[in-house]
Design a protein around this nucleic acid. Sequence first.
DNA 1: ATACTAAGTTTAGGTACTGAACAAACTTCC
DNA 2: GGAAGTTTGTTCAGTACCTAAACTTAGTAT
Lengths: 415, 415
Amino acid sequence: MNYEQDTNQKNSSTIQRQVNQAKILRTLRTLQPIARVDLARETGLSKATVSSIVDELVLESLVEEIGATTSRGGRRRILLRVRPGREGRCAIGFELSRNNLIGILVDLEGRVIATHRDLLPAGYLNPASLVELIQQQVQHLITPQDSTNRGLVGVGLGIPGLVDPNTGRVLVAVQFGWSDIPIKEMLEIQLKVPVKVMNNVKAAALGEVIYSNHSMEHSPNPRLYLSLGEGIGSALIIEGKLLSGVSHTAGEFGHITVAPNGPLCTCGNMGCLEAVAGLPALVSRYLELSRLEEPSRLTITPGEFPYLTSARFLEAVSAGDSLADRVVAEAADQIAIALAGVINFTNPELVILGGPLSQVGAALLNPITQALRRRALPLPLSQVRLITASLGSNAAGLGLGATIISQLSEVVLSR
Amino acid sequence: MNYEQDTNQKNSSTIQRQVNQAKILRTLRTLQPIARVDLARETGLSKATVSSIVDELVLESLVEEIGATTSRGGRRRILLRVRPGREGRCAIGFELSRNNLIGILVDLEGRVIATHRDLLPAGYLNPASLVELIQQQVQHLITPQDSTNRGLVGVGLGIPGLVDPNTGRVLVAVQFGWSDIPIKEMLEIQLKVPVKVMNNVKAAALGEVIYSNHSMEHSPNPRLYLSLGEGIGSALIIEGKLLSGVSHTAGEFGHITVAPNGPLCTCGNMGCLEAVAGLPALVSRYLELSRLEEPSRLTITPGEFPYLTSARFLEAVSAGDSLADRVVAEAADQIAIALAGVINFTNPELVILGGPLSQVGAALLNPITQALRRRALPLPLSQVRLITASLGSNAAGLGLGATIISQLSEVVLSR
DNA sequence: ATACTAAGTTTAGGTACTGAACAAACTTCC
DNA sequence: GGAAGTTTGTTCAGTACCTAAACTTAGTAT
C-alpha cells in the first residue's frame, strides 16, 4: 500500500485485496472506534478476512488497537481506529502562491499536525527550485528520523495556473512563466511518494467542501465552491471528484453573462459577472457613487480615493461603511443571478462562498440569500445549504492533504 | 451475469471475475473483431484467463467466434466479436409519453432490431396497467420461443416526470397524476430482468450523446444535451453518467436568467431563458412583430394568427418565413447567453441541440454559433463540438437500451 | 467451579489468476 | 513432402485470497 510496494506489485490485477483494504479503511474511518466483528458485519466480509486485512493495516501504521470494551458476556471486543498523529501515516498539502509556499502536514484523520511557510525567492521561480524547496519542507515537516518518507502517504500541490490533474502537468502558469511542466513526475522522482497536482483554487474548493462535512466521507451530490475576489472562479465537485472539463477550464463562473448589454469584460463578452462583481468593479463603483454621497458618512476619506485598493475597500465594508455595503449588496444581486442559474442547473447540496469578498460575511450572504429566493427554483433552492468558507489560507493545503489521505480508502479501476 | 445468477451470486465479494469480464467485454466491443491473444495484450490479463472468460461469455451468448484470419506463419487467430442481432442478447428501451409507449429492441452493439408503439388508453393510466403493457410489448419484441426472457439483458424506461434513477421510483409525474411509484421494483418482479428508470428527456440525452459517437464507449468529458421546445431543459453527462443532483432536478437550463429585468417567468423569476426563448414566447413574439410586417412577406396568413400553434410556427421557419426566421434568430441570441455560461462553466466537449425547435437546423444553429463566438471564452469554445440531435423520437429508447447494454461492460463497486 | 457467550484466530476448501509447458494449426524452405 | 519454425490457444501446477466452520481466548452468570 505504500509507494514502493505499489511499483513492484504483483501484476496490477489483484484487485480483490485493494478493494477490501479500502472498504475496511473507509468503514473504519466513518464508524471508528469499531471492533473487528462489526467491521465484518458492516463490510460483509468474513471475520477471518477482516482479521487478516486489519493485521496488514496495523503493520502499515494505518490502524491501531485502542484497548477493549467492557463485555456483556463473552470475550471483550478490541476497538480499532485509524492511527492519528505523527505515529500514524500522514500526507502533506502544498500551496504555491505568488510569494509563498505553504505546506500543511495532516494525519490520517485529516487534522493539521504542522504547517510551514516559505517566502519564495524573488525573480523567476525555476520548476527545479520548487521541487528542491518542497523537498526541504517535507524534511522539515516529517519527523527527522523518518528520512525515507516511509510515513508519508503522498504529497499534493496546488498551483495558480492551468493544470491537467490526470497527468500532473502544469499546462500554463502565467505568474511563473511556466508552460507544460511535468511537475508531478519531477516531484515523484525526488520524493519517492505519489504526488497529486491541481489548480490551487480547486484544491481550496476541495478543502472547504471536505471540511464542511465533519467527516471526510464524500457525498455523491454536487457541491459548489465559489471564489470571489479580483476574478471570480468556482469549482464543482461531483461524487467527490472535481469537474475538470475537456481543456481543464471547467468552473469559469466569472464569465457567466449577468447583464447582456453590460460593461465590456476582459474576455470580450459584455456583462460578465466578473466585470460587474469582481473586486476591481466594486472599487470603481464605490468611487463612482462616492461623488454623490456625503463624505462624512464614509469610512474612506476622499483623500484615499486615488489609491483605493480592494483590501481597503473590504475593510470599509467590515467597518460598516454604508456605501461600501450598498456596493456589495448590488454585487450580491448580480452574483445571485449567476448563482441561481448554476443552482438550477447543477442542483447542488452545498454552496460555499470563498475568496476575499466572502470574508465580509453577512453583508454578502444576506443579499445573496434574498436574491436567490426570487431567482432560483424553489425545489433546488430548498435543498442547498449556503455557507461561507472557513479555512482561510489553509484551504488548499488541507484539500490536497485530505485528497491524498482519501485515496487510501478508494480504489481506482484502471480501465 | 444474468439476473437470476446475480441474485444468488456467491457473496458479493468475488469482484475479480466481474471486473475482468467487464474489461474483456469493453475491449472486445471497441476493438472487435479481435483474437484472444490481442485481448490478453490489451487487457493485461494472461492468455489463460482470457480463454476462460471468453468461454463463459460465449456460453452466455454475449460473444461469438467468427472464423479465423489468414496467418503469416503460425496458428491462425480466431476472431471474436460481440454477438449481434437476435442470436445474441438484447435490451429494450421504453419511452412513455403523454399518448404513447414506444419500445425499442436493441442488440449488443446498440443497433435497433425492432420497434413497437402502443397508443395509451384514454383516461388515467394506472402504474399496474403500464407494467402490464410493457410486459406485452416485451413479448412482442423478443422472439416468442424465448418466453423466459433469457436473452434479455434488461429493460429501460423513460418517463416524463421526476424520477430517482437510483431507486427507480417515480417521485412525481404530473401528466399521469403519479407520485412516489416504485415502478422499477414493479417491473423487475414482473419481467425478472434488471430495470432502469429515468426521466425521458435525460434518456434522450443519453441516446443522442452515445450515438453521436459511433462507438458506445463513453468519454470522461462533460457532454451537454439541450432540449428546446415549449419548455427548455437539458442534461449534463459526465464520465458517462447523468448529473442528477440532490433532488434529481439537475439540468434546469430554461430557468437560467438571460434578461435580469425581462418578462416574468412561470417560476416567479424575471427573464428566464424559457420565458423569452420557449416556443410559446416565440409564437407571441411572432404575433407581436407581424403587426409591423407586410403580410405578403409572411408564410402564415393573418387569418391563422388567433390559432397559431408552435408546430405551425416551426413549419413557417422551415418554409423560410423571414419574420419567423428573425424571431428564431433573436431566441438564438438569448439561448447563446445561457449556453455560453454553461460552456464556460462545464467545459464540455459536445453540445447537442435537441427538442422541436432544434429541428429548424441552420436557422437556429448559425445564429447560436455566431453569438457564442462573442459570448463564450475562446479556450472552452474551441473545444466544443455543437451539433443537432439526430435520433428523433427514438432517442430516449435508444439511450435506455444502450445504457442497459453498457452496464454489461461496467462494474459498479457497491461501496 | 461450571456453564454460557461472544470476539478473534486457525484451518481446510474453493475460486480465480498467472507463468510455463504443451497442443494445434499454420507457413516456409529445402 | 517433410522438417523446422512460428504463433495461437489450452492445460496444468502453483499462488493469492476469500469463506465457513472449528477452535481458542477471555470474559459474564449462577
